[in-house]
């Protein structure tokens, strides 16, 4: 079942999401990328109602791009997260709300620090050192409580992420088989293999 994790470390944020697209009890696809690069230093994992997720993620991506083009000024992770939160909060109060849960991570270039935001479909937002959505979060959060280190190197961060993935594989009845993992740091966004 749908699961996404994210954690920060020394100068980076790692975001991971499973790659299944399911409908009812059927897996329709096992190579869906649910972590979107919103800009040169911004990543967002999206999960929730199929259809809503992609629609909302693309809406966010294009609005952030438009802001960059119009103002020649890139939104900081905090500003982008605030805008996304407000969009979801406005959507919730409309006739057709999006049901999308997000993990938004980015590297603030002027301040030289990583930031991670946990956002849900109700428009709740919280800046966190690590976070998770979906059934996997019940297993991952306790592990992250125990093993997360904000000053960890990228290798240590990936090792902590692997613990989460392995635990979910071991304990969750319908566990995802594959994950996309992306990192954002001072050099930008890249995908890594775990």
């Amino acid at each position: 079942m749908e699961t996404s994790f994210a954690l920060t470390g020394k100068g980076y944020v790692i975001i991971a999401s499973d790659t299944t697209a399911a409908r009812s009890i059927v897996k329709m696809k096992i190579d869906e990328d649910k972590v979107k690069a919103l800009g040169p230093h911004l990543l967002m994992a999206h999960s929730g109602e199929p259809g809503d997720t992609l629609q909302f993620a693309e809406y966010v991506e294009r609005n952030i791009r438009l802001y960059n083009i119009r103002h020649n000024y890139s939104l900081s992770p905090s500003a982008a997260a605030s805008w996304v939160r407000r969009s979801l909060a406005e959507s919730l109060r409309s006739r057709h709300p999006y049901s999308v849960n997000l993990l938004l991570g980015g590297y603030d270039v002027p301040a030289k620090e990583p930031h991670l935001y946990w956002i849900d479909y109700l428009g709740t937002m919280s800046e966190v050192p690590f976070g998770a959505h979906g059934y996997g979060s019940y297993f991952a959060l306790s592990l992250l409580d125990r093993y997360h280190n904000p000053d960890a190197s990228l290798e240590e961060g990936i090792a902590t992420l692997k613990r989460c993935i392995d635990e979910v594989a071991k304990r969750l009845i319908v566990s995802p088989s594959k994950y996309t993992v992306k990192v954002v740091d001072k050099d930008g966004v890249r995908e890594i293999e775990v």
Partner: peptide
């Protein structure tokens, strides 16, 4: 209100 940060100077000017 929208971005939870002070407006960048050039954007205000613009």
């Amino acid at each position: 209100l929208t971005y939870n940060e002070d407006i960048p100077v050039e954007i205000l000017t613009e």
